[in-house]
Design a protein around this nucleic acid. Structure first.
Lengths: 122, 122
DNA sequence: CTGATAGTGAGAATCACTCTCATATAGACT
DNA sequence: AGTCTATATGAGAGTGATTCTCACTATCAG
């Protein structure tokens, strides 16, 4: 646990939803002025491998999300960009996939796009 | 319908599973030597808007998939990279998402990773 | 305290992708 | 078939994100 990493973790913790690499970089540099971009990428990759962060790569500038470890999916608001986690999960049952396609499922990714409560209210 | 587009469509039709932009470019250039990369990107974007192709952006070089229009998801083999479509679909029901999170679902993306029948046999 | 190991920052390099613009077509309409 | 207009195209430069390299530094076990 080094100062750059600490600065990054704190900057991530402060973020409400998704963030871009440069946003995070700018933010973390307030704690640790000498921080390099390469370190941001390296640390994000590290966090990603530990399930603490996820990368949403859909068109445009890629955004990262803070995640809690454990199985969950994301609700992405198309209007304001906020991202929420949900533990609701439903995918085609493995057995059915296996029977119909001869395919053994091992993992899945589910992202749900729509409009969040706050945007609906507005 | 122009010669570059025809060459691209044929190259896509020949592909078994996912492909990268450069693979497609090289392949289509065998039909249409003067093809430019910009045209490949433009045409893929066009096909994507028509639901004939999808982009999987997970880490590394982005890959495109040939798709049939209509709702379906993909079974991606982690061992050989083959991609199969499935019309099996189950996601958390909108009503439940709405009730629990105040979030109105509009679309979802589901990709299932695992091992395909051929790789299981081998 | 010390040494092995892992992390860091700067900048160059790479890679995917987009933009620009002059040119060339496709396809609609005579 | 000939003409015309909107659209597509190719080349190459430009952009922005990401990775690489390497000399240097900090961490932590012993």
């Amino acid at each position: 646990m080094t100062p750059p990493r600490r600065a990054l973790l704190e900057a991530i913790a402060r973020r409400p939803g998704g963030f871009t690499v440069v946003e995070l970089y700018d933010d973390a540099r307030r704690d640790h002025a000498g921080l390099g971009l390469a370190t941001v990428y390296r640390t994000l990759e590290l966090l990603r491998r530990h399930g603490l962060v996820r990368r949403l790569a859909g068109g445009g500038t890629p955004t990262y999300l803070r995640c809690h470890p454990g199985h969950h999916h994301h609700l992405v608001c198309l209007s304001c960009g906020a991202v929420e986690e949900t533990d609701l999960c439903a995918v085609p049952p493995s057995a059915e996939v296996r029977r119909r396609h001869g395919f053994r499922s091992e993992a899945h990714e589910v992202d749900i796009y729509g409009t969040c409560g706050r945007c609906l209210a507005a």
